[in-house]
Nucleic acid binder design. Structure first.
Length: 316
DNA sequence: CGCCTTTGACCTGCGC
DNA sequence: GCGCAGGTCAAAGGCG
């Protein structure tokens, strides 16, 4: 497990038009992305809307944290690294082959139910015990039968490695904590959050690296089917490379309005909302950023987002 | 009062 | 099949 090596594809690096960061970008698994953020560069996360009190610098050894991140084996990661603080243009990144949409669906019948429910219907719920919560114990048999047929769907995941003293980083969405577990070999618990939007199935895990307590690992799973409470901030989007945006999974983290911001607004909404920091460890209450999206809402349908925003999301 | 976190129990997947 | 670890649920309590 821990011995599992993070192997950055040298060929990919070589062929990538994006310069690799100093620390390189590592694919730590096969289904998802890891954004390793050297936090001298809180600027990066800051640009992503996270109000992180950047205080330390250092290199995050992705090899060390990988077991926790990709332990499931179904995730993979890409890291984005920055090498020049304060300059978006200098941000280096390396996008590994995206393997998104490789959902674990074993029964064909599942796809039917999924397609009918679309993104508005949490695909995972039916498989979870929550769906059976109201059922008497005698239903266990049929329950397990169902679970044999319908395997939990794993959405593409993205992990961010951040140096921060704040565990729960502000990202513009509202999250509700639904669980916390002790992590093996780690003194730090892992927290589980779910997007408060009932129609949104996005989840995120937040944990600290046991190797470097100053490092926070945030793993997002799923795709938001709605607008953020108000953000992601425009400058953050400037950091998203074309490669990233073209990846539907990655792009989905940024709502249509978000992407619009990239093109219509630049730095006018970068003011940090310090009051949010006051509740750093609590739920991420929405940041009251005004979206510039309203000014150009049609970009979604104008082709810019046509290939990065799923139809289901556009209506969101 | 509504929303959130906490926390113990339960479920599931996986390796041995 | 068993045990472990990760993931989730849901009741209870706290807070603004």
């Amino acid at each position: 497990m821990a011995g599992k090596e993070i192997k950055a594809d040298p060929e990919f690096r070589a062929s990538s038009s994006w310069e690799c960061g100093r620390h390189g970008s590592e694919m730590v698994s096969d289904h998802g992305y890891l954004f390793g953020i050297d936090c001298r560069e809180s600027s990066i996360l800051g640009e992503f809307g996270w109000n992180i009190p950047a205080e330390s610098t250092g290199f995050v050894d992705l090899d060390r944290i990988e077991p926790d991140l990709g332990g499931g084996g179904t995730d993979g990661f890409v890291s984005v690294d920055s090498s020049a603080p304060g300059s978006h243009d200098d941000m280096s990144c390396n996008i590994m082959e995206p393997m998104v949409g490789e959902e674990k669906v074993e029964a064909a019948s599942v796809s039917a139910s999924l397609s009918s429910s679309s993104s508005e219907d949490p695909p995972e719920r039916p498989t979870d015990s929550a769906a059976d919560a109201g059922n008497p114990p005698s239903d266990t048999a049929s329950k397990s039968k169902k679970k044999v047929q319908i395997k939990r769907i794993r959405q593409p995941r993205f992990a961010f490695v951040t140096k921060s003293e704040v565990d729960h980083l502000e990202d513009g969405y509202r999250w509700r904590k639904y669980g916390q577990k002790a992590v093996k070999n780690s003194p730090f618990p892992r927290s589980y959050y779910r997007c408060t939007n009932s129609k949104c199935t996005v989840k995120k895990r937040v944990e600290r690296s046991y190797e470097d307590p100053s490092v926070v690992i945030t793993t997002y799973e799923g795709q938001h089917c709605h607008h953020s409470v108000g953000y992601p901030r425009p400058a953050a989007l400037n950091l998203i490379t074309p490669h990233q945006v073209q990846d539907p999974a990655f792009a989905s983290y940024f709502t249509p309005s978000t992407i619009t911001l990239q093109n219509s607004v630049h730095s006018t909404q970068l003011r940090p909302h310090s009051h949010q920091l006051g509740k750093a460890t609590g739920a991420s209450h929405g940041v009251d950023y005004h979206q510039g999206a309203s000014s150009e809402p049609d970009l979604v349908g104008q082709g810019l987002l046509g290939d990065i925003v799923s139809p289901g999301m556009r209506k969101g």
